[in-house]
Design a protein around this nucleic acid. Structure first.
Length: 947
RNA sequence: GGAUGGUUAGCUCAGUUGGGAGAGCACCGCCCUUACAAGGCGGGGGUCACUGGUUCGAGCCCAGUACCAUCCA
């Protein structure tokens, strides 16, 4: 083996070999275990959050695969409608082309071209991360099979009256000119104004205090052109005489009623609210209650119309309202219109005042522009009936969230769930399988052919398909079963559905998880007809943030590509990566300044295994993770440690007798101890993984490998290798090889590459060789064989530590062998020391060990205690009196403090009378120990003092 | 305004039925001892945010306060 660990030399070739050999395929043996990957955007690239989730999924899959399950990690990508369409439009714009001049078909071709060009990025990244997904089953939400499933679901939901079309107020993105769902809207607080407008009363009416107008306050004065009423609270005495009166709406000449509604907040502003049902969600609801006209004054790109469009609450045209709008504003963009309208009102002395006001403004999370509540025809899923079943599945534990608190988040959303707007005015996506005849009548079916047959439409009836496509989440909601072949009744579906665990971020619980549960439970039933859940467990991860705790985002320029952690990257390349394609120079400068401060030397290579181990170690449940380069470095060192420990094992075992061919095996105390210690580690490690405590699993692995196996066991094998007889050497070699071989299997799910690389050599010596470690049995917990060895060895370690402690604190050279005197040793201690002299000599670097009887006088010495036993290192010429006194003083102080605490507790009447007997006994024992320890130390202190 | 999570060593974080405060990194001292200097050995360091309560006993349970974060309105 190379002297230094070089992940870049081993990782990629191993992955290629695994993939070629088909190790990622389900074995078709054993119980099934299946994880569905959250499909990433096909034209995107993986960030640290993906690397994190993929690490956890791959760890689980590799663990279960080795543990005998028939595992499938289903892989695939998502077409990401808006995001992808935007990217391609931007690319085309750079060439001076827009999609409309290109036409729908040509444009979609361009998107497929782009997918072909960029779609490999993600799959390549996944291979570098070691993801053991079944590539042969890779799916894409727009491929034929999944498109068929989407169509089938749409048609069946429509037939079940769970999909409908209607003219509703939607969140409209005026830049992308499409509806978006309320989840895609980000409400941001901003400093705006509140305009107080005077609305003249009609027919000479006056307010209680004699005014001829009402004052309404609004954050969006431009929408006044679409006002349909002014509302007051029914109990508001100021306006009770005006119920049923009218307003002369300024600028438009429209006559609108004053209505009465509980919704109005009497305290806010004047207590009068303008109602604009076509441009505000709350007003829309009021409009429905009062049968107000919906007066739309905006075009689809948010410019003022020259004539309003008026509908009733059912979306049918209404003709009793004048549609005329002032010419002066026609064609003005909404924010320009706001200025112009405020100016016009002011000119007519209708502007009472302007107040500063903080309000929430909705922004499209893709386009970044202000979202407009807008009246359009859209398709909706009626979710209430689906939500009920989906809620129950979590309530009754068929689906469990880890950590559990996310269940509340799920419930609260499900309780107030709104119908889901699923149509998008885009070209990239699944086209809605609905056709219209010339009268606008709608027919839903799997094809135009089917529609014609079903409705007996003559060939000369013209039909045209709906232009819109479905929300991307509509297709990903079907992911768990569409990828397994649904609507066909496939073997894969029977084997792997319901799947086992879903690993995903909390940010898409609503977008994706909840919708998957609803759709799956509606369409898939078990043999008894009971709805099937898509997965039994949802493991929710936090976000990976940068070292300052900021969210990683392109615009902040703090995104980390996991491959840069693996391969390393120079500062120049990193700067280039982070600042190219940025619109603003100023931003680029900021980013490059911060990047230079954070990574002055760029990033060095750490390898995939170290990255994965770090991500696992940071995965404490349910909270965000602040990325920490130091942790990554630490775990790369850990890999290096494992590498070098393996080198040591191989150097001492290859081409030597490891007992494979028989021969007497004598196991040393250390051999027996490490066997049990490993056994305990297997138990803990499995239990951690079973509970999704990847952080604990990593800590357990680290502690055993470094602090026990390397620091103690390997050192303990050295005296055997140099001084042991044949049977002893055979026994130790056998143990070395077998513990390492099993340790590699234990660690494989977290560290797939380094373990495979080393295992290929070690397994030969252990007689368990195979083509890959990937499908070898996972270590099982064994019954305990060497109970006494555990106690003996842990005790011996204390002795060694005690001597090292003196050596360290007394500044004695590690090279100088020390003579040791033992006093107050009982029979057990004597046995332990005499049986293991060579271990003691080697690890504590001793010259000799001799026992003192109680009668012997103890020479001047530095002292350590192990239980009651005293370890003395004679001071003659070695040890400084004052230093030893100081050392003892510190120990005495510590013992006194301990003693005081114990005594205080036991002198407390309440404690003695109320605490459980075993606790009291434990405290008494501790008190006795402390007393004896203190006495021994004081005695020693006095002795030294006399010198 | 409502909900949830957080506040533990210089930094990043563990702490699982309430019973002697832990890890990694950083820091200090000694050491290139044939697996590893990406290392070895030893060491220092914490009023567990604050206030009160329950309890013989609270980092942990309860109430409240402050600050931070996220989600919802």
């Amino acid at each position: 083996m190379d002297k230094t660990y070089s992940p870049q030399n081993i990782e990629q070739p191993l992955y290629e070999r695994w993939e070629k050999a088909g190790y990622f395929r389900p074995s078709n043996q054993g119980d099934s275990y299946c994880i569905m990957i959250p499909p990433p955007n096909v034209t995107g690239s993986l960030h640290m959050g993906h690397a994190f989730q993929h690490t956890l999924m791959d760890t689980l899959i590799r663990y279960k695969r080795m543990d005998g399950f028939n595992t499938l990690w289903q892989v695939g990508t998502d077409h990401a409608g808006i995001a992808t369409q935007m990217v391609v439009e931007r690319k085309l714009a750079a060439q001076g082309v827009n999609r409309h001049s290109l036409g729908r078909e040509k444009f979609i071709e361009k998107i497929w071209d782009w997918k072909a060009e960029s779609g490999g990025t993600i799959t390549q990244q996944m291979r570098r991360l070691g993801d053991s997904v079944d590539w042969e089953r890779e799916r894409f939400t727009m491929d034929d099979g999944l498109s068929k499933a989407v169509q089938e679901v749409f048609v069946r939901l429509y037939e079940d009256n769970l999909i409908y079309r209607g003219k509703r107020l939607v969140n409209w993105d005026p830049k992308l000119k499409t509806a978006i769902s309320d989840l895609e809207v980000e409400n941001k607080e901003s400093q705006g104004s509140l305009w107080h407008l005077r609305y003249p009363l009609a027919d000479g009416a006056t307010t209680a205090d004699g005014k001829r107008y009402l004052i309404v306050a609004t954050t969006r004065p431009e929408t006044m052109l679409g006002d349909a009423a002014v509302a007051v609270h029914p109990d508001d005495a100021r306006y009770s005489s005006l119920h049923g009166a009218y307003i002369e709406l300024p600028l438009t000449g429209r006559r609108i009623p004053i209505i009465v509604d509980d919704y109005v907040d009497q305290e806010f502003g004047s207590g009068c609210v303008k109602i604009t049902p076509a441009h505000d969600f709350n007003d829309y609801d009021i409009g429905k209650r009062h049968d107000l006209p919906l007066i739309n004054i905006l075009s689809d790109d948010a410019h003022i119309l020259s004539a309003a469009e008026v509908f009733d609450v059912k979306g049918l045209p209404r003709t009793d309202v004048a549609t005329a709008l002032p010419e002066a504003f026609a064609g003005l963009e909404r924010f320009a219109a706001r200025k112009a309208i405020v100016a016009a009102l002011e000119a007519e002395d209708l502007l009472d005042k302007i107040e500063a006001h903080t309000n929430k403004v909705p922004y499209g999370d893709r386009s970044g522009v202000v979202i407009e509540p807008f009246l359009t025809d859209q398709w909706y899923v009626r979710v209430a009936p689906l939500a009920e079943t989906a809620t129950q599945a979590v309530e009754n534990g068929d689906i469990q969230f880890v950590p559990k608190q996310y269940e509340n988040m799920y419930f609260s959303w499900m309780r107030d769930i709104q119908d889901w707007c699923i149509s998008r005015q885009l070209w990239w996506g699944h086209r809605i399988p609905a056709w219209y005849d010339d009268s606008g009548k709608v027919y839903v079916g799997r094809s135009e052919q089917e529609v014609r047959e079903k409705h007996s439409l003559a060939a000369d009836v013209a039909l045209h398909q709906d232009n819109d496509v479905l929300d991307t989440w509509f297709s990903s909601a079907l992911w768990t079963f569409s990828t397994l072949g649904w609507p066909d009744d496939t073997e894969a579906l029977k084997t792997f559905h319901p799947t086992d665990v879903l690993v995903t971020g909390f940010d898409i619980i609503f977008f994706w998880v909840a919708r998957m549960i609803m759709m799956t439970m509606h369409f898939l039933k078990d043999e008894q007809g009971k709805p099937q859940v898509p997965f039994k467990t949802v493991y929710v991860t936090g976000l990976i943030r940068d070292e300052q705790g900021n969210k990683m985002s392109k615009s902040k320029g703090n995104v980390i590509d996991p491959l840069d952690m693996i391969d390393g990257i120079s500062l120049d390349t990193l700067l280039e990566k982070r600042t190219s394609n940025l619109m603003q120079d100023k931003l680029a400068q900021q980013i490059s300044k911060r990047t230079k401060a954070e990574f002055p030397e760029g990033i060095s290579a750490h390898g995939t295994d170290a990255l994965r181990f770090t991500l696992a170690a940071l995965a404490s449940t349910g909270r965000d993770i602040n990325w920490d380069m130091k942790r990554l470095e630490g775990y790369r060192n850990f890999c290096n440690k494992l590498w070098n420990a393996s080198r040591y094992v191989l150097m001492n075992t290859e081409d030597q007798d490891c007992g494979l061919a028989g021969g007497e095996l004598e196991l040393s105390l250390a051999d027996q101890w490490i066997i049990e210690r490993f056994n305990g580690t297997v138990k803990q490690f499995r239990s951690a993984l079973d509970q999704y405590r990847f952080d604990q699993a990593a800590a357990i692995a680290y502690e055993f490998t470094w602090n026990q196996f390397c620091d103690w066991y390997l050192e303990l094998t050295k005296p055997v290798m140099t001084q042991g007889n044949a049977a002893q050497q055979r026994g130790t070699r056998h143990t070395l090889v077998h513990i390492l071989e099993q340790l590699l299997r234990l660690l494989h799910p977290l560290l797939p590459f380094i373990t495979e690389e080393i295992w290929q050599r070690v397994s030969k010596l252990a007689g368990t060789h195979a083509d890959t470690i990937m499908n070898q049995p996972y270590p099982q917990v064994q019954s305990i064989r060497f109970a006494q060895a555990q106690d003996d060895m842990e005790w011996l370690k204390q002795v060694i530590v005690g001597i090292r402690n003196i050596r360290g604190e007394m500044d004695l050279s590690p090279n100088k062998p020390l003579p040791v005197l033992i006093a107050k040793a009982d029979e057990t201690a004597k046995r332990r020391l005499t049986d293991n002299g060579s271990f003691l000599a080697a690890l504590a670097k001793l010259e000799n060990v001799s026992f003192l009887s109680d009668a012997d006088e103890i020479p001047a010495s530095a002292t350590a205690l192990v239980g009651r036993m005293e370890i003395h290192i004679p001071m003659a010429g070695l040890i400084d009196k004052d230093a030893e006194l100081a050392r003892l003083g510190k120990a005495i102080e510590k013992a006194q403090k301990e003693l005081q605490r114990m005594a205080g507790k036991l002198n407390n009447e309440n404690f003695v009378s109320k605490a459980p007997a075993d606790v009291i006994e434990k405290e008494r024992e501790k008190l006795r120990d402390a007393e004896e320890t203190l006495a021994q130390l004081q005695e020693q202190h006095a002795r030294i003092l006399e010198l």
